[in-house]
Nucleic acid binder design. Structure first.
Length: 201
DNA sequence: TGTCCGATTGGT
DNA sequence: CCAATCGGACAG
């Protein structure tokens, strides 16, 4: 019999090193319940760390605290959703203690549950294109602004412990789409599972 | 209120 | 390579 899934606990998210959390999020399952009692889920295969006030690429750079970024100042384990390019949402996991605006962007998933629903939402795209990008995975998972500020220890969205990814299977490199970030552009704060076919790009 | 631009994507 | 598309941030 399949063992009961374990929801990831608060102390995983409240750790102070956002790079560690970004690496260790790989391999875990992101779950969103669907309206019919089923669920949609996928294994996290790619992440990016955003280090708050000191990181020019972060929305919270310089301690910026606005209506939008306020979410990132919440307790680790809070969901930060933002809208970009006039059409896409992005799913982030807030880390660290309250008032330290660190977050991890989830950039790609390997579909597990609810694949038929994902295909429908993604307009019949090939399976490998369902969730291989931060905007695409939000469409496939049905994630939008309503989940901003949700608690990952609640029932609207959560993470379940998955297979532990050994360090030798984790690769890192520069983050995507932050060319405006000056010296922070080259920080290798993007992490992905080596050779996983669902990684973006 | 007006302007500028983006943590992307999909089609040339 | 480039357009789509619109809310957030900030200047005035």
């Amino acid at each position: 019999m399949k063992p009961a899934a374990t929801k990831i606990r608060r102390d995983f998210y409240t750790r102070t090193n956002v790079l560690t959390v970004a690496r260790e999020l790989l391999g875990n399952l992101l779950v969103v319940p669907a309206t019919d009692g089923t669920r949609v889920s996928g294994i996290i295969v790619e992440t990016e760390a955003y280090r708050g006030p000191l990181d020019r690429a972060s929305h919270a750079y310089g301690g910026r605290r606005t209506k939008r970024t306020e979410t990132m100042y919440g307790l680790g384990g809070t969901v930060y959703i933002f809208f970009v390019y006039g059409m896409y949402y992005q799913f982030n996991v807030v880390t660290n203690v309250k008032d330290v605006p660190h977050a991890v962007l989830v950039r790609a998933l390997q579909p597990i549950d609810g694949i038929e629903l994902m295909r429908h939402r993604r307009h019949g795209q090939p399976d490998r294109n369902l969730t291989n990008g931060p905007g695409k995975l939000c469409i496939a998972m049905g994630i939008d602004r309503k989940l901003d500020r949700a608690d990952l220890l609640g029932t609207d969205v959560w993470l379940e412990a998955g297979e532990k990814i050994p360090p030798r299977k984790i690769v890192s490199g520069p983050r995507i789409g932050i060319d405006y970030a000056g010296e922070w552009v080259d920080k290798p704060w993007r992490f992905w599972i080596k050779d996983n076919p669902f990684v973006s790009r």
